[in-house]
Computed example of a mutant assay.
Amino acid sequence: MAVTDEAIEKIKAMIVSGELGPGDRLPPEKELAERLGLSRNSMREAVKALEVIRVLDVRRGDGTYVTSLEPHLLLEAITFVIDMHDDDSLLELFAVRRMLESQATGLAATHGDAEAIAALQAEIAGVDSGVSIDDLVAHDIRFHREIVQMTGNAYLASLIESLSSQTIRARVWRGLTEQGAVERTLSEHRAIADAIAQHDPALATSLATAHIAGVERWLRQAAQA
């Protein structure tokens, strides 16, 4: 194992064990390096690496702290990787999103409370078939975000959010080029919301799968045209 990797593992072990928690300040570099039996240079490189993936927060003139370790921070690296992919990867991203979000929709039907369901229904009531493409995309993002938040799983919500950001362009393309896309999208959203309101996870999962698969089919056809 490289020395820097060893330093990363030792700092990670301190966090995992609870010796260092969210918001805690790390000991000074020299003290920590001596304590872990590592060189200051390898310790410095380890801190830089952990800062990049949002585990540590280096505050110049103040010290180095453990971040909040919240899911949206820790999953930013995944978002970066996804954003680096080109348009040819959209189908693969949609396939992953379909698998995750369909199950999340089933969980929403199981765990969604009256307040969350009312908010979802209000979101749908706020748009109609005359909505612009830009407003439809904004609605689509809010609609799916509210569903995933009903699961109560912050990691799942952050992961799906990172996937969805890359698929916005595909939603726009579909709205601009496919006849009836607006009406179909809103109709599918209403059906999904109704299944969630009825607390029917099997139906909600099936409808969400079909909803996302419809965009996948359009993308596949567009790529072959």
Score class of each variant (00 low, 15 high):
2 A>H: 13
8 I>Q: 14
9 E>F: 15
9 E>M: 14
9 E>H: 10
9 E>V: 12
11 I>H: 11
15 I>R: 07
19 E>Q: 15
20 L>S: 12
21 G>N: 15
21 G>H: 15
22 P>I: 05
23 G>M: 04
26 L>A: 14
27 P>E: 15
28 P>C: 07
29 E>V: 15
37 G>I: 07
40 R>H: 13
41 N>Q: 13
42 S>Y: 12
44 R>V: 07
45 E>A: 06
46 A>V: 04
49 A>I: 04
49 A>C: 12
50 L>P: 15
51 E>G: 15
61 G>R: 04
65 Y>C: 13
66 V>R: 11
68 S>M: 01
73 L>K: 04
73 L>E: 10
74 L>P: 08
75 L>F: 05
75 L>W: 08
76 E>N: 06
77 A>N: 10
79 T>W: 02
79 T>C: 01
80 F>H: 05
81 V>G: 03
83 D>Q: 14
83 D>G: 09
87 D>F: 06
88 D>I: 11
90 L>P: 05
90 L>M: 09
91 L>T: 11
94 F>N: 06
96 V>C: 05
101 E>L: 05
103 Q>N: 02
105 T>G: 02
108 A>R: 03
108 A>K: 02
111 H>T: 07
113 D>T: 08
114 A>I: 07
116 A>C: 05
116 A>P: 10
117 I>Q: 10
117 I>L: 02
118 A>K: 12
119 A>I: 11
119 A>T: 11
119 A>F: 04
119 A>K: 11
120 L>D: 07
123 E>Q: 10
124 I>P: 08
125 A>R: 06
126 G>K: 04
129 S>Y: 09
130 G>D: 14
131 V>H: 12
132 S>A: 13
132 S>T: 09
132 S>I: 09
134 D>G: 10
137 V>Q: 10
138 A>Y: 01
141 I>N: 00
141 I>S: 07
142 R>L: 00
142 R>Q: 00
143 F>Y: 03
145 R>A: 07
148 V>W: 03
153 N>T: 01
154 A>F: 01
155 Y>V: 02
157 A>D: 00
158 S>L: 00
159 L>W: 00
159 L>F: 08
160 I>K: 03
160 I>P: 00
161 E>T: 06
162 S>V: 08
165 S>F: 09
168 I>N: 01
169 R>P: 00
169 R>S: 02
174 R>W: 11
178 E>F: 11
181 A>T: 10
185 T>C: 12
186 L>C: 07
187 S>C: 11
188 E>R: 02
189 H>P: 03
190 R>W: 06
191 A>K: 14
191 A>V: 10
192 I>N: 13
197 A>G: 02
198 Q>V: 04
200 D>K: 00
201 P>M: 00
202 A>W: 00
203 L>Q: 08
208 A>W: 03
208 A>E: 01
208 A>R: 01
211 H>K: 05
211 H>N: 10
212 I>T: 06
213 A>R: 04
215 V>D: 07
216 E>H: 08
217 R>H: 15
217 R>N: 14
219 L>T: 01
220 R>K: 11
222 A>I: 02
222 A>T: 05
223 A>R: 14
